[in-house]
Design a protein around this nucleic acid. Structure first.
Lengths: 186, 186
DNA sequence: GCCCGAAAGCTATGACAGGTAGCCGCATCT
DNA sequence: AGATGCGGCTACCTGTCATAGCTTTCGGGC
């Protein structure tokens, strides 16, 4: 039995690929082990539990989202930046719908320190964009929540097939972005 | 062994109460059977499977949401009606966060006929409220999606503890409602 | 008032999940 | 070359959904 040469990070990557392909329901230690070419109990040499694995996956996903969002907003400001951020965020969810469901809704208070850190990175992108409007403190928090609620709601619904009617979904998203930017100072 | 006098509806009610109390993770046939005072396999005399039970629960939940939403909008129009609808919807989610997670995001195409019917009832409330703005056809669909995305996103995030910062969440929701109504014709 | 069938309960069993215990062998470092 | 520890394994536990097949209760027709 040659060694598989696994480590914690590799296990997380295998699990992420699995969820990307077969959806979050298919995430089981047995499936991850199988895909990694290893017996299920062997995974416990690298992760603490299935819940732990989920947390590690969420951290990686949050980092990816922060990276994508930040690079989308980079070099833009105000309405342009908000639109780019909202599109990048939504597109990420659509590209990896399974991943997104693994991210807890309350990553700031939810998990271990790395989770909170990754979530703060993403949150910081939202705050940075809103600073372009002169928003700080409470106003920035309220505005961030508005943006997040809109983009999260839309992305989840679209990814879940929730927009069943025939009208163009992209047109709706353009309108949603306009709705959000109109609520920001001008 | 005296009979428990169960039927499909009673099983669904037991399951709903269970989820309301212990959360959606606690929903298992064993737990439902226990709470109903019956052995687990006996449930199969009333429901087809756990997935079936979930569907039946979702239908009941959608009906309750349609009822609550319709009665909130009743006797109001335009911005008043939208605000009332959004508050009623969000309050329902907060009152029964476990229930809401059982409702599929695509109930119209997802399930058996009763599910689609219940979803249509709820959707119709949104459309009816928007008719007060003279919105029909495509414009009404886009507007409904904007409202739904905003309220769904906010409700899910709030119920999930996603608004961790100190600022008043009710204030944010007021702003979200204003953001939505501002996007409707005036 | 009885009987018989349908409905509703049960026990037993199987397949599969996460998780634990404890053994073994590969690989590296001295 | 040998000792050591890490990464893999098999075997087994509990809890889950689900099925098969038996038994008992209930209610309607005679």
């Amino acid at each position: 039995m040659p060694r598989a040469g696994l480590n914690s990070d590799a296990v997380v990557d295998v699990a992420l690929a699995l969820v990307d392909e077969k959806g979050p329901e298919a995430l089981s230690l047995a499936a991850v082990a199988d895909r990694a070419g290893v017996a299920a109990p062997s995974l416990y040499k690298h992760i603490g539990s299935l819940a732990d694995l989920r947390d590690l996956m969420a951290v990686k996903i949050l980092h990816a989202m922060a990276r994508v969002s930040a690079s989308a907003a980079l070099g833009r400001s105000r309405d342009d930046a908000v639109a780019a951020l909202m599109r990048a965020y939504r597109d990420f969810v659509l590209a990896h719908p399974g991943w997104y469901t693994l991210v807890p809704l309350d990553p700031l208070r939810h998990g271990p320190a790395p989770m909170a850190e990754a979530a703060r990175d993403l949150l910081e992108v939202f705050f940075a964009v809103l600073r372009g409007y002169g928003l700080t403190d409470a106003a920035a928090t309220h505005a961030t929540r508005r943006v997040r609620a809109a983009v999260h709601g839309f992305a989840v619904l679209q990814a879940g097939g929730g927009f069943g009617l025939a009208e163009d979904v992209e047109e709706t998203y353009d309108q949603l972005i306009a709705m959000v930017t109109a609520s920001l100072p001008h």
